[in-house]
């Protein structure tokens, strides 16, 4: 079985966002970058599929040279091969997906894994975009995954419940938290990842379909009201919610 995983590199969740000099993207000063947290579930799923069914695993990333860190994290966890489509350009989801699809066409994997979403732009697009470009089915927000001969059965989260979904192979799966517990790389894995080569490629497509006009920070709120410090504040709070905030 051939398994591909797509990973992106994103600012750490504790990042305090500041708008950069271009007014359109964040100021990278002082930001720590990590592998997109949802992509760790995708990497773990790939490794478990390989352990169960045999086969080969490959990780693909589109972006800056620093995305190699995400690939190395996947290596350290156990992925065998890595490809970076190297570009400094700001690519939108469509463009990222086109580049991924061009690489994946060649790989011809039975299962392509993605994270549910990148926690930078929170787009939730690349998995299904890429699948459509490859002409294969896709299942997103997946919390359980079983593969039997030529069929996958997944549970995907929807509002207030789950859908049990079936698909034929090849298929693209986007991993939601809960799918598995990503393993911690061991020291040997980390050391081996350092020197393992990463194949570099040029982007095949660069024309975005969307344009960012500007970035802004949320309007800061006026300081809230501390209504009280014990039970006696309760009636006042309820009154404020009804009469001032008018939310009840």
């Amino acid at each position: 079985m051939k398994i591909a995983v797509c990973v992106s590199q994103v600012p750490d969740t504790t990042t305090k966002v500041k708008v950069g000099a271009d007014g359109k993207t964040i100021d990278p000063a002082g930001v720590t970058y990590i592998i997109n947290p949802y992509d760790e579930f995708a990497v773990e799923a790939a490794l478990q599929l390989k352990e169960k069914n045999g086969g080969e695993t490959v990780v693909v990333s589109v972006g800056k040279v620093s995305n190699k860190e995400a690939i190395k994290k996947a290596y350290a966890m156990g992925i065998e091969k890595g490809i970076l489509v190297k570009s400094d350009a700001e690519m939108d989801s469509y463009t990222v997906a086109r580049n991924l699809a061009d690489v994946l066409k060649e790989i011809n994997a039975d299962i392509v894994l993605f994270g549910k979403q990148s926690i930078d732009y929170d787009d939730m697009q690349v998995g299904n975009l890429t699948a459509e470009m490859l002409g294969i089915p896709s299942i997103s927000v997946v919390v359980s995954l079983t593969v039997e001969s030529n069929k996958v059965t997944c549970e995907r989260e929807i509002e207030g419940g789950k859908e049990i979904v079936e698909s034929t192979l090849p298929v693209a799966i986007s991993a939601q938290r809960g799918l598995n517990n990503p393993r911690y790389p061991n020291l040997k894995g980390i050391m081996a990842a350092k020197s393992k080569p990463i194949e570099e490629r040029q982007p095949t497509y660069t024309e975005n379909k969307t344009e960012i006009l500007g970035m802004s920070l949320p309007k800061s709120k006026p300081k809230g009201k501390i209504v009280g410090t014990d039970v006696s504040a309760v009636p006042e709070l309820v009154k404020l919610l009804r009469e001032e905030a008018k939310v009840i």
Partner: peptide, 23 residues
Amino acid sequence: ASAMGKDISPRVSAKLEAGLVAD
């Protein structure tokens, strides 16, 4: 941008080569 809308929209975007602004 419901669970269904988020699932459908990227596929339509690819089919129509249409830029998609999500959420």
